[in-house]
């Protein structure tokens, strides 16, 4: 996180949040590669496609794995692991939430709040960068069984579609 001289302006006050270059994030997530996907965003269940297709003669199986609400993970040049939340380009509601999150979380620091490392507002992109949490989210531990069930349902329907 060396190259971050800018800060975001909000009203008269400067928010003390580093901005990252789009190319840095692009490198870290290997151009937002499919292998780095963590989830699809905060709306509804989020899955990671682990191995895209495993073709064994007759059917192809898609594996889904439940993960967190973050879009991508990546590794910065200095080896730090990051979670990346990327705003989809056509959601107006998301833009408000993005602004809200930036303004609020940049002013907060506590060991029980997730730490935001920076953001990226460049061209059409609105991206938030957080520290990566290796143990995912609490719902996986509480609803693990239910999620497993949903996983199998998805697996079965994927199988039906593909065969």
């Amino acid at each position: 996180m060396d190259q971050m001289p800018h800060t975001i302006k909000h009203g008269k006050k400067d928010i003390d949040l580093p901005t990252l270059d789009l190319s840095t994030i692009d490198n870290a997530t290997r151009s937002f590669s499919v292998n780095n996907i963590l989830g699809e965003g905060g709306y509804g269940p989020v899955y990671k496609v682990t191995s895209l297709y495993l073709t064994n003669g007759t059917h192809s199986i898609i594996y889904f794995e439940y993960l967190s609400t973050f879009n991508h993970w990546g590794v910065l040049a200095n080896g730090q692991e990051i979670a990346v939340k990327r705003l989809s380009k056509n959601s107006g509601q998301g833009l408000d939430e993005f602004r809200n999150e930036v303004v609020l979380i940049a002013n907060l620091q506590h060991r029980n709040l997730v730490k935001i490392l920076g953001c990226c507002v460049q061209e059409e992109e609105r991206i938030l960068i957080y520290e990566f949490m290796p143990n995912r989210s609490l719902d996986l531990y509480i609803f693990g069984l239910r999620l497993l069930l949903r996983f199998f349902c998805t697996l079965i329907s994927a199988k039906i579609i593909l065969t």
Binding site: N100, N112, N135
Partner: peptide, 24 residues
């Protein structure tokens, strides 16, 4: 606040995330 917005670090310390709907 919900389980999927509580993230867990290496030592299983909880961290609250997702301030998209939060109010000041």
């Amino acid at each position: 606040i919900k389980a999927s917005n509580i993230l867990l670090d290496n030592n299983m310390n909880p961290k609250i995330s997702d301030f998209g709907l939060a109010r000041m």
